[in-house]
Simulated scan of single mutants.
Amino acid sequence: MEYVNVTKDNIEEEHICCAISNNKDVQVSSKKAWLSERFDEGLVFLKSVERGKCFIEYIPAENAWIPIEADGYMYIDCLWVSGAFKGHGYSTDLLTACIEDSKEKGKKGLCILCASKKKPFLADPKFLKYKGFVVSDEADNGIQLWYMPFDKNAKAPVFKECAKHPHIDEQGYVLYYTNQCPFNAKYVPVLEQTAKENGIAFKAIHLESKEEAQNAPTPITNYALFHDGEYVTNEQMNDKKFLKLAGK
């Protein structure tokens, strides 16, 4: 498999989304704008030449849009291999490239969000364990922080206190989200309109800076839905899924 680094110079020509084929789609544009603003902060987006079917996205943990304390680590935003491309070693290719790059940059290790059982839009724990990652911290909602230290004496990364006990005081449905996930550009407005039409209490909180994301009340910041103060899911929803969840 041939791979290419997406940069400011080629991002407009490259396909970067795992599921959206139209490079002009508002969802893709939203994601590309978010990526473009992160490159100067050390973000790396390495993808296969096969459109967006295989890629890894990572950034120095100090600049990651999640509430962790992981100075000196590299944080993996996403490691994705889809469909027929699974089972050919491409995940290993991408992870190996990330490891080599991170070591060259003097990082202490890697970290990534996961859970004890596979959850949508999170890494596969079986794969991480096989590659040598271990759990360094876990929030009350079961979201875990996994890490691979390059030095056995390196301090393990942890969640910030604000994210260890995901809970908010607001009632109704409250969604925290960022532009990191392209699907939000389409489906957040869908939820807002669906909630309005059906009399469902709903509020969307758009995290627009790393400072906001790093102090969010949830380990997952690209999409975290709460109901009556309690965390519900990180899975993006269309109108039908949301109405079913709300009992409508």
Rank of each mutant, 00 (worst) to 15 (best):
A33F: 09
P67Q: 01
K129Q: 12
I112R: 01
N23P: 00
W146N: 05
D124S: 10
A139N: 00
I200R: 11
Y147D: 04
L207S: 07
D9K: 15
L245C: 08
S29E: 14
W65N: 10
F242D: 09
P217K: 02
D169E: 15
I76N: 01
E192T: 12
M1N: 05
E14S: 13
F85S: 07
D40M: 03
K117D: 12
V135Q: 03
D124Y: 03
F133M: 04
A224E: 03
V232Q: 09
K126P: 00
S48P: 00
E170D: 15
S82D: 12
F133T: 11
I68H: 06
W80A: 13
K244E: 15
P182S: 15
N179T: 12
I168N: 08
I168F: 09
N23Q: 10
Y73D: 02
D137F: 03
K103T: 02
C17D: 14
N215W: 00
G87P: 05
F127M: 10
L79D: 05
D169T: 14
E12L: 12
A185V: 10
Y187F: 15
E69A: 07
P149L: 02
F55N: 06
V26C: 06
G72D: 04
I16N: 01
A201D: 15
A97I: 08
P67I: 04
D137T: 11
E161G: 02
K248T: 08
N10F: 09
H88I: 07
I205A: 06
S91W: 00
Y90G: 04
T96V: 02
K164S: 08
L79K: 04
S30D: 11
K108H: 11
E211A: 13
A213L: 04
Y75H: 14
I59A: 08
H206Q: 08
L43D: 05
C54Q: 11
S209E: 05
C78S: 08
G109V: 01
C111Y: 03
D71G: 14
L245E: 14
Y73H: 03
A139T: 06
F226K: 00
N215H: 14
G72I: 03
A213V: 03
L245T: 05
Y176L: 12
Y147E: 03
A246H: 09
G72Q: 05
S136K: 02
P219H: 04
K210Y: 02
K53I: 00
P60R: 09
N22W: 10
S21H: 13
T218S: 15
T96G: 09
I59P: 08
H165W: 00
M148G: 00
A33T: 15
H206M: 06
T178F: 10
N234M: 08
E212Q: 15
L175R: 07
G199Y: 12
E211H: 07
D77Y: 13
P157R: 06
K108M: 06
I68Q: 03
Y147C: 12
D239M: 04
K240D: 13
M1C: 05
I66F: 02
A139W: 01
Y3S: 00
E208K: 14
Y231Q: 02
K196P: 07
W34C: 13
E211S: 10
A195K: 06
G229D: 03
K32M: 13
Q171E: 14
